[in-house]
Design a protein around this nucleic acid. Structure first.
Length: 422
RNA sequence: GGAGAGGUGGCCGAGCUGGUCGAAGGCAGCCGCCUGCUAAGCGGUUGUGGGGGUAAAACUUCACCCAGGGUUCGAAUCCCUGCCUCUCCGCCA
């Protein structure tokens, strides 16, 4: 959520941001219209309240002195009625104003490249060279089937399309990656968290999934819960409605969770294999930092995610998302894309974002500076380190051998207990 | 699932026979005094959000005692609903 004051007083900037994101500017107009009505009415109501309070005090005084107050009571009653009536309209306006404001996306940082869609994202750096195999590389689902480590057919019998069933060394690979990633992250000072994966509406709103993106979420009806699409949701909401001390910051968390996504609107895409699933595992890192440090922290966070790929020896590149491809809540995002020989292309495996105070304002996460009055919103960041399913894909495809076996990256062998899956 | 207790400021904790309550008292924090140092002691001060105001303050006003409704001229205090926490019983991984 943006600062109402900025929206009101710096409308041009917000408008510019909407344009760069290919958003219709009408959402801003709607908001401003309602907001100005709201303020007008609020002013009138507050003046009347002041009057009412004065009457009440007068009445109290008279009663204490055992004097008659009936004439004042009539007048006070009138004002009070008038307030009650107006308060109803005010409530409606407030509700509308917030709803509109919640639909306005974050303002992209000035360093974000301007562009229409993902084709205009900018490559920042590359690590490793796409492997040149001396045989025709297979897709991961073919490799997995030959090794009998993933069973898509039975998964679909049990649950449906876009689910997977890991078996044997496949299941162990998934578990090994989880532990490996958590160990690397915690060794760097990220505190390990195992959060709820069902959350309430407030948490979903706090990080920006609601109200705009309910079509992408799985919801449980009774009692009402949402399945998290990413650990970002429960972990960022750890500090919802809290005022942190300056000395608490920065806070670094890492969490493994399953993630659940409807993938509505992606019917034709990635129908085979592990790339796009309704349920997948992910290790996430989340930071709460002081505003002046958040961009340096974004660089560090991205490097920490890259480090996992480097340790696994997987070639990748980092791209800066352009304004047209940037997520709703994000001010700046780097995607890390891993090389997949089976597809002969780079695919997203991590997304690292600085939300500045956008989520913090929604979730009301503040901090107090030492010796200073008042509070400020913290900046929140997060990134995948990494999406585990896609890491499995990358390992199978990059480490496949001519004989159909898959060697295990050095760093993972202590976790797997074997050097090769065959 | 059954029975009961409770949710007040950074924390603890009064108030809850409605008015002078943004809220006693304590702790913690900050400023100062005092003591050779530390401790103790003494005095003062310290919530959040919005509006107006100012160069910035001062100042002023509205709201906030879990949340949402209601009663009333007036609610932390009375009534209803919801959420959460705790204790006991039952059931269960």
């Amino acid at each position: 959520m943006l600062d109402v004051k900025i929206v009101r007083e710096n409308t041009a900037k917000v408008l510019d941001a909407l344009k760069k994101r290919n958003y219709d500017s009408s959402i801003l107009d709607n908001f401003l219209k309602i907001e100005s009505k709201r303020r007008e009415l609020l002013k009138i109501i507050e003046e009347q309240r002041e009057q009412r309070n004065k009457f009440s005090q007068e009445i109290a005084k008279l009663k204490r002195e055992k004097k008659d107050a009936s004439s004042l009571l009539d007048e006070a009653k009138q004002i009070s009625d008038s307030i009650t009536e107006k308060e109803e309209s005010l409530r409606a306006l407030e509700e509308q104003a917030t709803q509109e404001l919640l639909l306005i996306p974050n303002i992209p940082h000035e360093s974000v490249p301007v562009g229409k869609n993902e084709t205009e994202n900018v490559e920042i750096r590359k690590w490793g060279e796409p492997k040149q195999l001396d045989f025709l590389p297979l897709n991961h689902w073919d490799i997995a089937e030959m090794l009998n480590i993933i069973d898509f057919e039975r998964a679909s019998k049990i649950a449906g399309a876009r689910f997977s069933l890991m078996k044997g060394m496949g299941a162990k690979l998934e578990r090994a990656l989880m532990n490996f990633m958590l160990d690397v992250n915690t060794s760097k000072g990220y505190k390990e968290i195992l959060p709820p994966i069902l959350v309430n509406k407030e948490s979903m709103t706090g990080t920006g999934q609601l109200p705009k993106f309910d079509m992408e979420l799985f919801r449980i009806a009774d009692p009402e819960f949402y399945l998290i699409p990413t650990a970002e949701v429960p972990v960022t909401n750890i500090h919802r409605e809290e005022i942190l001390n300056e000395s608490d910051l920065p806070i670094y968390y890492t969490a493994y969770t399953p993630c659940f996504r409807r993938e509505a609107g992606s019917y034709g895409k990635d129908t085979r294999g592990l790339i796009r699933q309704h349920q997948f595992n992910k290790v996430e890192i989340v930071k709460f930092v002081k505003p002046e440090n958040s961009y340096a922290e974004l660089e560090k966070l991205t490097k920490d995610a890259e480090d996992i790929l480097q340790r696994l020896g997987l070639p990748y590149r980092v791209v800066a998302l352009c304004t047209g491809d940037l997520g709703f809540s994000s001010a700046k995002t780097y995607d890390i894309e891993v090389w997949l020989p089976g597809q002969q292309r780079y695919r997203e495996i991590s997304s690292c974002s600085n939300f500045e105070d956008f989520q913090a304002r929604r979730a009301n996460i503040r901090f107090k500076r030492e010796g200073k009055k008042g509070t400020e919103f913290v900046h929140t960041l997060n990134g995948s380190s990494l999406a585990i399913g896609r890491t499995v894909v990358a390992i199978l495809e990059n480490y496949q051998q001519k004989d159909g076996s898959v060697t295990i990256p050095e760093a993972l062998r202590p976790y797997m207990g074997v050097e090769v899956i065959k």
